[in-house]
Nucleic acid binder design. Sequence first.
DNA 1: CGATGTGAACGCGTTCACAGCG
DNA 2: CGCTGTGAACGCGTTCACATCG
Lengths: 223, 223
Amino acid sequence: VADPKKISDSTVRRLSHYLRLLSAVQAEGVATVSSEELARWGGTTAAQVRKDLSVFGSFGKRGMGYDVVQLAGELRGILGLDREWGVALIGAGRLGLALLSYPSFRERGFHIRAVFDTDPAKIDSVREGVRVRRLDDLERVIAAGGIDIAVLAVPAAEAQAILQRLAGAGVRAVLNFAPVTLEPPPGVQVRHVDMALELEGLSFSLVQGRLGGDDSRPVSSAR
Amino acid sequence: VADPKKISDSTVRRLSHYLRLLSAVQAEGVATVSSEELARWGGTTAAQVRKDLSVFGSFGKRGMGYDVVQLAGELRGILGLDREWGVALIGAGRLGLALLSYPSFRERGFHIRAVFDTDPAKIDSVREGVRVRRLDDLERVIAAGGIDIAVLAVPAAEAQAILQRLAGAGVRAVLNFAPVTLEPPPGVQVRHVDMALELEGLSFSLVQGRLGGDDSRPVSSAR
DNA sequence: CGATGTGAACGCGTTCACAGCG
DNA sequence: CGCTGTGAACGCGTTCACATCG
């Protein structure tokens, strides 16, 4: 089980998806699903579903499909969602505060236990039950334990420096919302959520869809 | 130039990255960059940079590299960032309001021109200079023009229905923040920003990194 | 039988290596 | 000579097809 096989990023993403779908159908009282059904709901293929799951074991019953409750449990274990994770939020700006009250985090076991900012007006104020601390205290608070993951919601210019401090303090997983490419310190997993980048991708597809010259698509574009 | 070649999603992402880096070094007065430099700053390889660019043309000077200003202009054109895009924001909750005041959007030419919500307390209030409208007016406002892209910041349960309405109203590009898999209506580009999913990916890597050892954390699992 | 689990085939994005041009 | 542009080789994730077992 603890094999050193490389799990692709997209596989992990799909596992999360499957778990979500399972939770949904479980709420409807469904007891069993086939790879076919999981695929349809999740926007992939049945073979893909089975391949993804087969990496971690054999959870299905041939001729039957997968037991919803059991598979959900397996996935939670695989993804590490059978525990609670302590999260530190860096940056109590609008985005940071929105994340602080984002329900899906707590629902899935991610508890924001510390919030940091540099704005004196915010320090020591309490948001969503968490006291905002001065950024200077970062190392001390993390050293006290209970923090597994850091969420970076700071201006782009400051992100790299703070990432370095986080790494030094022993944080090994960071979710970055700043629109910059960060150099990940060794041993630290960094993931990016870049909303502007996604919009640019949409912009691209809109422009491309309009290329191809003459009568490609008779879609009237406004403006 | 307007060839029907398929551009991979990751290529488009990297193009956005390159443009960002170019803007940064341009501000520092650098006139020329090599693919090598772009690669180092962007976390890829020089060959990758050249491949990405070669799809759209030959922008470099052999033995010299790329002219920063010129390449930035080309990329802006390719990505459709040489114009302004009208954006409709659906959902004026905390996340929606955070997005509304997110500076990177306006900086890159994405103007939020309409905000919708269902909460009577919010309707007709003005946030960041934009009046919040009732969701019922969605079709009418979009029909009036000036909206190219929609940003979905609504509860998961409502997202699919609103996506359908957006498609019906003629919107062809949607950025979804709701943590659900949406069925994209034909002709509509849907991109997802799923913050909980990213956290789960970090959770996975933390758990995996801990495997193979016997001194793992004695965390009690509930549920 | 029916749907899983999986080795083999496939397609595609990435990397390599070098020809080509300023 | 230096760095770009690009065909060829490579690796990897996805898809196919079928043997397997409840």
